[in-house]
Nucleic acid binder design. Structure first.
Lengths: 222, 222
DNA sequence: ATGGATCCACCTATGGATCCCT
DNA sequence: AGGGATCCATAGGTGGATCCAT
């Protein structure tokens, strides 16, 4: 089951077109994989299934999923109205080496520069393996979107780089927010106090609000 | 099988005294563990068995095995003449944050400040589970030993901190040497070039030469 | 006997995200 | 429906050291 990495965006789009309308169970069968019956203990399974089907190469790296062509894959769970049901995880909030960083050099910027959004039904009334993939969208932020993302990122990182992690709220940011990203609320990762003293705190990640991803999807209807 | 951590050196010595003369198989049976038949695929098993028997608490940490009393446990494989058969691993050679470090603040210094040396037969003609523990020695370096260790450490770290890791030879050092510490020769860890550029190289560790540990053991006969 | 090469267990960090309470 | 909490798989690092060719 060695699916080659797509060499061009066109190849990727052709491949992802084969997913549209297929159920998770069907795709799993094509790859000779056993799908779990639900997501409670397998939250990342859909994303990894899609990665395999599309020939993603960087599953373990801090790099775009499709390294050759610089494209990041994001599955987007949508409700019965076709709207995003959840926020979208982007990457981990790094708490060391934050000084001197800029939006342009940030991981968030790199990951969001070119994204293949792949809708997947997530209505709880549909059994997991019966849920269908939708039509994917290859996207880059408009200049307006990028301006807001940059502003959100800078407001968050201003607090983080001065050691005021505790002051960063999940309510902050129009498109981008910070939320916990950990095994549980007791998890601890490396961080620094406002005095620069190393300490530990709950690991967090950058997430895109569902109101934002909704606007990305609906743009197709314009 | 929860063996309490020793609260004093005296408690530790009493407990380790119970090991003297016992075979690995016997000790494993006391702990209700199944001993492997050899060490080829279980190189660290003896050390971990001893840790469990003695109530060590820091198996996963960069700290002395017996945190309460600041004692490090080292099993010492000895040949049929009672002499150390192998060099002794001390700790990993850290390749970042090397500037500004001193012998006094080093991990090597801390780990060797107080060591419980536990001899174990390693003659290949004795089946693994039949090998016996010997009489342990609770040791601290003499001022002469510490002076040589410090000198060895400083010569090594002078090269490392200037990015000349490649110039560090295993032949260097009277008591302390640098040798590979990795899954295999292809392993890569973080390091820095002499210009301070991050790169990767084979992970290495500090080891005590067997000529040195031999002198530690024979001191008991003086 | 030396020094380059290697082996396992266990723990943690990261990438994939959704769960679920209020 | 927002945000705090959580879940799995897998890779990689660390601590325990010995193997083995020359």
């Amino acid at each position: 089951m060695a699916i080659p990495a797509p060499a061009t965006e066109q190849e990727l789009l052709e491949r992802v077109g084969l997913l549209a309308g297929k159920t998770i169970g069907r795709v799993a069968a094509e790859l000779e994989l056993a799908a779990p019956s639900d997501q409670k203990r397998n939250k990342g399974w859909t994303g990894q299934l899609a990665e395999m089907y599309l020939g993603a190469t960087a599953s373990t790296l801090s790099e775009p999923d499709f390294q050759l062509i610089g494209v990041e894959l994001k599955t987007l769970p949508v409700n019965s109205q076709g709207n995003p049901a959840e926020s979208t995880y982007v990457c981990t909030l790094t708490l060391d080496q934050t000084t001197g960083s800029s939006w342009e050099s940030s991981v968030v910027h790199k990951k969001l520069a070119r994204v293949l959004w792949l809708p997947i039904e997530s209505d709880q009334t549909i059994p997991y393996t019966h849920r269908r993939f939708g039509t994917a969208i290859l996207w880059s932020p408009t200049s307006e979107q990028e301006a807001v993302l940059k502003n959100d990122w800078e407001e968050i990182m201003e607090l983080v780089s001065t050691g005021n992690l505790d002051k960063v709220s999940s309510s902050q940011g129009r498109y981008l927010q910070i939320r916990p990203k950990a095994a549980n609320a007791a998890s601890l990762g490396k961080s620094y106090s406002s005095e620069g003293i190393p300490n530990q705190s709950l690991p967090r990640g950058f997430y895109l609000r569902s109101t934002f991803t909704r606007s990305v999807l609906s743009k197709m209807g314009d």
